[in-house]
């Protein structure tokens, strides 16, 4: 029981990170119907920007942790958004309306490029970071000494995720940007005809997705304390699985899918074999796509003939 609770906590934490990345996939897919294959690498860049910011702040002697984290969060979101914006501008916008596999292939190229760019600029070795947020609660002590622990970092991750989710849901539901976004999802040409700046809306979608991925990157860095240039690949694929599982195009779906994938992965590792946890994630993706192509919260799609 105690072990189960511990895994539940770990799974929800991991799931929050996946969910944050998955939102980027789901928003981009919703608006232009493409899989932004480079999104996992945007997440990786977010983690690197966070790492560098924390190191800089450490060198500058800033010791009040909450402020340092806030600054890191803002810097990471800003700079990573710039990457998201540039990627869309360079690799996807020229291909809008082109032959259907072209943007996906371009995205794969961009993903390879970004990985090697960071590898070249930052080196191929793993980057360890000493724990920034330490401590936590322990409870439910078992006679044999096993205790369930809930670290402050896990609380931060879940709280930040919930706050951002709420903020973004409001943004999509209430603001003119959100309206423009939903309009472009429905019918891009019509949206342009009624005076929506479609290019700008799509750009902003990428920026928002990248900002959330940056947050996820920062959380990943702080939670695991180690990153390298390759983390984006697996995390990206799992987050995409989460987006599909939740129903691609749906924001709550992405979050739900992220949580489920995080939980499945954690429980699989805890109760079965840790080696095959990635196989489990992919297996779920395949099963979902075959039996539930619209996902848990997705809208049924009617084929346009």
């Amino acid at each position: 029981m105690e072990y189960f609770v511990q895994q539940l906590i770990n799974g929800i934490t991991l799931g929050s990170i996946y969910g944050l990345i998955a939102i980027g996939y789901t928003m981009v897919y919703g608006i232009i119907g493409m899989i932004n294959f480079a999104h996992g690498d945007i997440f990786m860049i977010g983690a690197f920007v966070s790492l560098i910011t924390i190191l800089l702040l450490g060198m500058a002697g800033l010791s009040w942790i909450p402020l340092a984290l806030l600054i890191t969060l803002i810097v990471a979101m800003l700079l990573t958004s710039a990457y998201g914006w540039t990627v869309e501008r360079l690799a996807y916008r020229p291909l809008r309306g082109s032959f259907r596999l072209a943007p996906l292939i371009s995205a794969i190229g961009m993903s390879i490029f970004l990985q090697n760019y960071v590898q070249l600029a930052q080196g191929a070795r793993v980057k360890p970071l000493q724990p920034v947020v330490q401590g936590g609660f322990t409870f439910m002590e078992r006679p044999d000494g096993f205790t369930v622990s809930l670290s402050y970092m896990q609380i931060v991750i879940v709280v930040v995720t919930i706050a951002l989710m709420a903020a973004f849901s409001l943004l999509i539901a209430r603001t003119s940007l959100g309206r423009a976004q939903r309009a472009c999802e429905q019918d891009r040409r019509m949206a342009a005809l009624v005076g929506i700046n479609v290019d700008r809306t799509i750009s902003l979608t990428f920026v928002m997705g990248a900002a959330l991925a940056a947050v996820a990157g920062m959380m990943f860095l702080l939670y695991y304390g180690v990153i390298d240039f390759y983390i984006g690949f697996l995390a990206g694929i799992k987050a995409f699985t989460a987006a599909v599982l939740g129903g691609i195009g749906s924001l709550p779906g992405a979050m739900l899918g992220g949580l489920l994938i995080g939980l499945i992965e954690t429980f699989w590792s805890a109760y079965f074999t840790i080696e095959y946890k990635d196989v489990a994630a992919f297996g779920i993706l395949v099963l979902v796509l075959i039996f539930l192509p619209t996902g848990l919260l997705g809208k049924p799609e009617v084929e346009k003939v």
Binding site: M34, I35, R100, L101, L104, I237, F240, T241, V244, T273, E275, Y276, D278, V279, F282, G283, L285, V286, L289, I290, P293
Partner: peptide, 26 residues
């Protein structure tokens, strides 16, 4: 998987490729 739409197919085949590698590895 061949019933899936183009880009879903891409991701699923990628997943299969990785699965085979993980199995060979373990």
């Amino acid at each position: 998987v061949l019933r899936l739409r183009g880009d879903y197919l891409a991701i699923v085949t990628l997943g299969f490729g990785e699965m085979i590698r993980v199995i060979l590895l373990n």
